[in-house]
Amino acid sequence: MKLGIIRCMQTEDFCPGTMDFKVIRERKGAFEDVTEDIEIIGFTNCGGCPAKKAVLRARELVRRGADTIAFASCIQKGNPIGYPCPFARKMKEIVQKDLRDENIRFLNYTH
């Protein structure tokens, strides 16, 4: 798996992403059933609300080799502050639509 992670820009000031990297390394959370090697291609933010830049950032992760895009848990689940992104569903829709011809796998969360 060649993984690109998109995270919430609002949480990056206080969350360095260590739990994302830990669950990847330990094969937990969304990576529990992954048996192949995992190479992290990139770790970027959504570009800020309302997440319109997420498409460009996902496209760049794919251009650099990602075959899987994970929306970090701060987006879908609101970790660690308990506030899920109000644009999460729409963000995922527009990214999936933009990359529909690229055969990309999507993960809704990381941990």
Rank of each mutant, 00 (worst) to 15 (best):
G17W: 14
Q76L: 07
G29L: 05
C8I: 01
D67F: 04
D67N: 15
T11W: 03
A54Q: 04
K77M: 13
D20A: 12
R27K: 11
K53A: 11
A72P: 05
R63P: 00
V34Q: 06
E26D: 15
A54W: 01
F43L: 08
G47F: 13
T11S: 14
E32R: 03
K77Y: 12
D37V: 09
Q10D: 08
G29T: 02
F31P: 01
D37M: 08
K53T: 00
I75T: 10
C74Q: 09
V23Y: 07
I40R: 01
F14M: 04
G47M: 09
L61T: 12
F21E: 02
N45P: 00
V55T: 12
I69C: 00
C49I: 01
C74L: 11
I24A: 08
L61Q: 05
A70V: 11
F31S: 00
L56D: 14
C15N: 07
E12S: 07
C74S: 14
A58P: 10
I69W: 00
I41G: 00
V62H: 04
R59K: 13
I41A: 06
I24M: 08
Q76S: 13
G17R: 13
I40E: 03
T44F: 03
T11L: 10
D37K: 15
A54L: 11
G47P: 07
E32S: 10
R59E: 15
V55E: 08
K28W: 03
D37W: 08
C49V: 13
C74K: 11
D37H: 03
R64H: 10
E36N: 08
G17F: 08
G17M: 12
I41L: 04
A58H: 10
D33S: 02
D13L: 12
G48R: 14
V55C: 11
R25A: 15
E60I: 07
T35W: 07
A66E: 06
Q76D: 06
I69S: 08
K28A: 10
P50S: 12
T44K: 15
D67Q: 14
G29I: 02
R57Y: 06
K28Q: 08
F31M: 04
D33P: 00
T11H: 14
G17Q: 00
E32V: 07
L56Q: 12
C8P: 05
S73G: 14
F43N: 12
I69H: 04
K52L: 09
C46K: 03
E12I: 15
E39F: 05
G17L: 10
I69M: 04
D67Y: 05
V23E: 01
G29W: 05
C8F: 09
P16N: 15
V62Q: 07
V23M: 06
A54Y: 04
E32G: 06
T35P: 03
I38Y: 06
P16F: 13
D67I: 02
A72I: 06
